[in-house]
């Protein structure tokens, strides 16, 4: 059997690369490399050697121009030394090759602002964004996420609901127009929505919906289901001791966030590698 190789890009303000790599390993990736952006820009490392691209949470360039904006600009415009093209072009070939991309929090913001999500009809024109929480502040709290069972998302397959923490100041999902929102909904791309503890209905109610996201959207995939982004942090719930109430509830050893990574690895093993 061939190796499943995951890559986590770090540098310029990413913060969660270590726990994302850990989650990939626990979920069964044979390799989970943390690669500094300078190694991609110098041409020392190429995305094409990997199957699973992880864009970790953090504050790219301090989110100084709006979350992930300056980071997106770098990936689009910085040239790779000695070779040709940009990291953005490498990502596009990566996706075209049928591989998997997951962006968490700042990584989700990056995917949306580069136009990789929702990428309706394959267009990479930015059509949605993630902006300031309605509360106007950063917030760290746990949220219940209802899964859309009809979504093409390969990461959420077979799940009904998951409980994960959000930790962001700019997590409110907004689309450029109602048509985009309708397309997202009708194609079941909004695979995760903030809900109550029963995972029954999406909610706009604070704090269950911590940021006022349109249609309670917390996570989104493209039409292939292979590019996926979410504001909550799955790498933060890999073991039961990550759960805020593990000292008082009977919980399985494996955390709910791990399920997303396991789905990714399973898909790669079954369909790609």
């Amino acid at each position: 059997m061939k190796e499943i190789r995951a890559i986590v890009i770090s540098g310029n303000g990413t913060n969660c690369e270590r726990e994302v790599a850990h989650a990939c390993r626990v979920a069964g990736a044979d390799v989970a490399d943390i690669v500094h952006i300078s190694e991609l820009l110098s041409g020392a490392v190429s995305l094409s050697d990997y199957h699973f691209l992880n864009l970790a949470g953090g504050f790219l360039d301090g989110d100084d121009l709006g979350s992930a904006k300056a980071g997106a600009n770098r990936l689009l415009h910085a040239r790779i030394q000695g070779g040709q093209g940009s990291v953005a072009q490498q990502i596009e070939s990566f996706v075209a090759a049928g591989k998997l991309v997951m962006g968490v929090c700042n990584g989700f913001q990056l995917l949306v602002k580069m136009g990789y999500l929702p990428a309706l009809g394959g267009s990479l024109q930015q059509s949605a964004t993630l902006t300031h929480n309605d509360g106007g502040r950063f917030v760290d709290r746990w949220t219940y996420l209802k899964v859309d069972p009809a979504s093409p998302c390969v990461f959420t397959r077979g799940l009904e609901g998951i409980y994960l923490p959000v930790r962001h100041g700019e997590g409110k999902f907004v689309t450029s127009c109602d048509e985009v929102l309708e397309a997202i909904e009708s194609r079941h791309l909004s695979c995760l929505k903030y809900s109550g503890p029963d995972y029954a209905e999406p909610t706009q109610e604070y704090p269950l919906n911590p940021n006022g996201s349109t249609n309670a959207i917390a996570g989104l995939c493209d039409e292939t289901g292979r590019v996926f982004g979410l504001m909550p942090h799955p790498e933060a719930y890999v073991h039961r001791t990550h759960h805020p109430r593990w000292t008082r509830e009977d919980l399985p050893e494996e955390g709910m966030g791990l399920l997303l990574y396991q789905n990714a690895i399973r898909f790669l093993r079954e369909e790609l590698v």
Binding site: N15, C16, R18, E19, H22, G57, R137, F138, V139, D140, R141, P165, R167, H233, E235, A236, V238, H242
Partner: peptide, 11 residues
């Protein structure tokens, strides 16, 4: 105040 601080990064 506590919720404005990320108290869970690094897992």
């Amino acid at each position: 105040v506590v919720r404005r601080y990320d108290h869970e990064v690094q897992a």
